[in-house]
Amino acid sequence: MKSEQEASASHAGPIVELSGVNKHYGDLHVLQNINLEVSKGEVVVILGPSGSGKSTLCRTINRLETIDEGSIAIDGKKLPEEGKALAKLRADVGMVFQSFNLFAHKTILENVTLGPIKVKGMKKAEADKLAMSLLERVGVANQSHKLPAQLSGGQQQRVAIARALAMRPKVMLFDEPTSALDPEMINEVLDTMVGLAHEGMTMLVVTHEMGFARKAADRVIFMADGQIVEQSSPEDFFTNPQSDRAKDFLGKLITH
């Protein structure tokens, strides 16, 4: 029974597939031969010291950053170079930024409906309904007529999650979604993310929140100096890290 399930899962193929990805910023080799597969429904947490290339990795997956070498595929489709095809594939990849990046001149509702209406050609009434149900789900439906600046950081980030979900993405990328938040707002965002994870969303999350990694991650990837140094289950990684870099990283976290 189990092997049958595995067989059907592998037949579908990974949602995200990076192979031999290299990227340089001038002399800095910021991504070094990255190979990574994320399968459907998997939640992968990326950890690593500052400057190790976590954000860059995340951003290459929807081509906000270009790569020098290698290939990236979303649900089996290679990322196109530019233009309409790229825009279309980007809609399949939801992204949540550290600084929320809600459209400052649009209401909360309009932030969520813009993509469905303008990218997917959805009717306004239908998009409004979809948006309200998503805002309900992240707990900010009662703020729908306000502008982003009128919301707290935690609320803004939950709207950003709803905005990404409105495109019905195949995978969600989170780049330190709670790092810009006041401590008392971190949990409301993490809870939303844990909820998503339990509903089966495929997620790639860069975070320093170890609690989230323990609670929701299927796999932890540890990066240092542009390389994936080790990957394992959260349990294994936290209790039994293999590399010196990972031991050092975890040691610093615990003493803080």
Binding site: N62, L64, G83, K84, L86, A87, K88, R90, A91, V93, G94, M95, F97, S99, N101, L102, F103, A104, L114, G115, K118, V119, A160, R163, A164, M167
Partner: peptide, 14 residues
């Protein structure tokens, strides 16, 4: 801010 353009691209706007 640059993030506005990135967010627009990320939801699939060309």
């Amino acid at each position: 801010p640059l993030g506005q353009a990135e967010a627009a691209r990320a939801i699939g706007l060309s």
